[in-house]
Write a protein that binds this DNA or RNA. Sequence first.
RNA 1: GGCGGCGUGGCCAAGUGGUCUAAGGCGACGGUUUGCAAAACCGUUAUUCGGCGGUUCGAAUCCGCCCGCCGCCUCCA
Length: 510
Amino acid sequence: MGLNLYNSLTRRKEEFKPLKEGRVGIYVCGPTVYGHAHLGHAKSYVSFDVLVRYLRYLRYSVTYVQNITDVGHLTDDADEGEDKVVEAAKKEKKHPAALAEYYTRSYFEDMDKLNCVRPDISPRASGHITEQIELVKTLQEKGYAYEVNGSVYFDVSKFKDYGKLSGRSVEEMKAGARVEVSPDKRAPVDFALWKKAEPNHIMQWPSPWGMGYPGWHLECSVMSMKYLGKTIDIHGGGLENQFPHHECEIAQSEAANGVQFVRYWLHNNMVTVDGQKMGKSLNNFITLKQAFSGAHERLTKSYDPLAVRQLILNSHYRSPLDFSDAALFAAYSGYKKITETVMAVRKRMAQAAKGKTGSKAAKGKTDSKATKGEIDGKMVEELKRLREKFEAAMNDDLNTSIALSVIFELVRLANKLLEEGNATAETLNAIDVLFDRLGGEVLGIVKDEYPQAGGADDEMIDKLVKFWVEQRSEARKRGDFKLADATRAELDEIGIVLEDKPDETEWRRK
RNA sequence: GGCGGCGUGGCCAAGUGGUCUAAGGCGACGGUUUGCAAAACCGUUAUUCGGCGGUUCGAAUCCGCCCGCCGCCUCCA
């Protein structure tokens, strides 16, 4: 079975077949950079990150384009409000371009922490004004757009398929319309392609219709076309953008090009907080920086960014995710368990490797078989089963919840093996490879390398802790458990956890 | 008002006609281990899937009604 994806356009799961064999072009609606990214952004971009990663795992050559909206996104869609970036810039007393740059960097910083692979191309809307003007001209020439008072609107009545993605008819939209209609429009459903700018508007560009700026929907049509062609394989975005944003994109692109715009439309569901949608305008959002630092009243602690990632992967991308500190904490605990298991496997691998060269590790528990270089046949079967289960889950519209459960099966398998203490280096290696490929390459929650001694990069801390651990070991040898326990408690308060293993005492940060 | 979705154990969450007396994680409890812990492992923790009816040999899964919640229709990932 190949990869199946739920296509919002057809409202069912379909087998994924790219336009060109072996190659995939994917466009995802990026952020409007007028504030720090929040948990909602994380769900969306982690979801599509996993899609991109999995496509690459399946050996597709993927071109991943994700725009940065730094102009044109109005505060409301009655075509009246102010540009979001401009508005925020005023508040922060910065040039809009500086503000956009600041939050763009902030965005990438957060996404890097979430271990999202960078898009191949991150085009800025402001860098594609020329192309946007060209598209408007084309639409005008083809009779799909009309100009009124220096603004240009898309004539929805000329585009028969309008509503095919969101499943609503123009009649329905008229009936349910709550938007105040601009008097310039011929019909309420028409939307702006180009907006006339008032003289004091900071962001504006010359055009055949005078000074102005592009409508929000235009940039995605233009940039996807420029970098991926007239028909793209996959377009992703948040569910709330299905209408009107994506519907308008389809209208613009297909009216201009006369060919299908997107073959597979993918939409991720929303993040809610206490059952309420988290949105910037609702002011109930938690930014990623807050989640990572714990600086938010709803959070009880700071969280490893990958715990956030794990929380997101724990549920399906098309299901809503109701955020709570308890849920994040649970994800964090699970993430920690995976991490510690991977580290333990790698440590034992290193010991087994030493064993081969004849050091003392080979004589102990590490096993007589360690030098034989064989993998238990049963183990091979088991690992194969896990990989197949993982792939089947991912093939079924990216069921990361089940995919994660496979990682946990692997965790249990690995720990049992470590406990029995008779694993061959080859078996350990096979397990590590699976952790790397499934947990690392695809899910992005297993790292290639972890800092030594549980997270302390600082050499001095490392030495200090080792000193106390040695002092405590001496005390234990003497039978002075009172002192040993006091030392352990003291270190625990600082945030250092000690674990007495059979041959040594290990430590890690809480 | 129009359109769409959801309701699964203490919490998060997968499953969408039979393998489900329902995966996985977190938590809790008991055990192994430990000087004691921690970590790990083993075991227990939903005869039941919002409620009531119906279809079916068979339903968490399909249909109807009711209750509760959410999203879109206005900016939002």
